[in-house]
Simulated scan of single mutants.
Amino acid sequence: MRRPLRCTPQAGATLVELVMTIVIISIAIAGVVGAFALITGRSADPLNQTRAVELAQLYMDEIITKKYNDNTPQGGRPKQTSNLCDIGPEAGESRDTFDDVDDYHNLVDEPPAAADGALTGYNGFRVTVTVTCAGSQVGLANEDGKRIDLSIVAPGDQSFVFSAYRANF
């Protein structure tokens, strides 16, 4: 006895289903590529922030270790009482001869440099130093404290500001 043939249903995708799949995948890929483009554009930000902090630490270490003013002996004692807010370098001084904190006032380095020469890897950075008498901001007589403000501009015009105080002790 012969068995009757049965029709088995065809398996597969229709043209409409294929077109819909292509459209959905295209939209998903466009979103992922857009996210990658945004991330790639910001990938240098953390590196520039880290380098700006390192640069600020280098400059602050150099400045803070200097004497309070020209008349202050190395070590800070005896405490000086005259010409404490005479801000700025003396005539003829350059960075390699700066000997007190206020000599760094209005220093602009582009590209940044260490006291003993150039730094590598900081092209595109600019450092500006401002020193002001600001003892009253930390509970001292105004002339007994100086505030050092470092402004660092990184590539891409990112700006970072760092401040420290140096007391006349």
Score class of each variant (00 low, 15 high):
residue 3 R to G: 14
residue 7 C to F: 09
residue 8 T to G: 08
residue 8 T to V: 08
residue 10 Q to F: 02
residue 11 A to D: 15
residue 12 G to V: 03
residue 14 T to K: 07
residue 16 V to N: 04
residue 16 V to Q: 11
residue 17 E to V: 06
residue 21 T to I: 01
residue 22 I to E: 07
residue 23 V to Y: 09
residue 24 I to H: 01
residue 26 S to F: 05
residue 26 S to G: 12
residue 28 A to C: 10
residue 29 I to Y: 11
residue 30 A to G: 12
residue 30 A to L: 04
residue 31 G to A: 03
residue 31 G to R: 05
residue 34 G to T: 05
residue 35 A to C: 10
residue 35 A to W: 10
residue 37 A to Y: 14
residue 39 I to K: 08
residue 40 T to V: 03
residue 41 G to V: 02
residue 43 S to V: 05
residue 43 S to R: 14
residue 46 P to T: 06
residue 47 L to E: 15
residue 47 L to D: 15
residue 47 L to W: 02
residue 49 Q to H: 14
residue 50 T to I: 05
residue 53 V to C: 02
residue 55 L to N: 05
residue 55 L to F: 00
residue 57 Q to N: 11
residue 62 E to F: 00
residue 65 T to H: 15
residue 67 K to R: 15
residue 68 Y to M: 02
residue 68 Y to Q: 10
residue 69 N to C: 11
residue 70 D to I: 06
residue 71 N to G: 06
residue 73 P to K: 11
residue 74 Q to A: 11
residue 76 G to T: 08
residue 79 K to P: 00
residue 79 K to H: 06
residue 80 Q to F: 03
residue 86 D to S: 15
residue 87 I to R: 08
residue 89 P to L: 00
residue 89 P to W: 00
residue 89 P to E: 04
residue 90 E to Q: 14
residue 90 E to S: 13
residue 91 A to V: 04
residue 92 G to D: 03
residue 93 E to S: 09
residue 93 E to C: 00
residue 96 D to E: 14
residue 98 F to T: 04
residue 99 D to L: 00
residue 103 D to W: 07
residue 104 Y to G: 03
residue 105 H to K: 07
residue 105 H to Y: 08
residue 106 N to C: 08
residue 108 V to G: 05
residue 108 V to Q: 04
residue 109 D to K: 07
residue 113 A to K: 15
residue 114 A to C: 09
residue 114 A to I: 13
residue 114 A to D: 15
residue 115 A to R: 15
residue 115 A to V: 11
residue 115 A to F: 02
residue 119 L to A: 06
residue 121 G to Y: 06
residue 121 G to S: 04
residue 122 Y to E: 13
residue 122 Y to R: 03
residue 122 Y to A: 06
residue 124 G to Q: 10
residue 125 F to P: 00
residue 125 F to D: 09
residue 127 V to N: 01
residue 128 T to N: 13
residue 129 V to A: 02
residue 130 T to M: 12
residue 133 C to G: 08
residue 133 C to D: 07
residue 133 C to W: 05
residue 135 G to A: 04
residue 136 S to K: 12
residue 138 V to Y: 09
residue 138 V to N: 01
residue 139 G to A: 10
residue 140 L to T: 09
residue 144 D to V: 03
residue 144 D to Y: 01
residue 145 G to T: 13
residue 145 G to M: 13
residue 146 K to G: 10
residue 146 K to C: 01
residue 147 R to A: 11
residue 148 I to T: 01
residue 149 D to Y: 01
residue 150 L to S: 09
residue 150 L to G: 06
residue 151 S to W: 01
residue 153 V to P: 15
residue 153 V to C: 08
residue 155 P to T: 13
residue 157 D to Y: 08
residue 159 S to K: 10
residue 164 A to C: 02
residue 168 N to M: 11
residue 169 F to N: 15
residue 169 F to K: 14
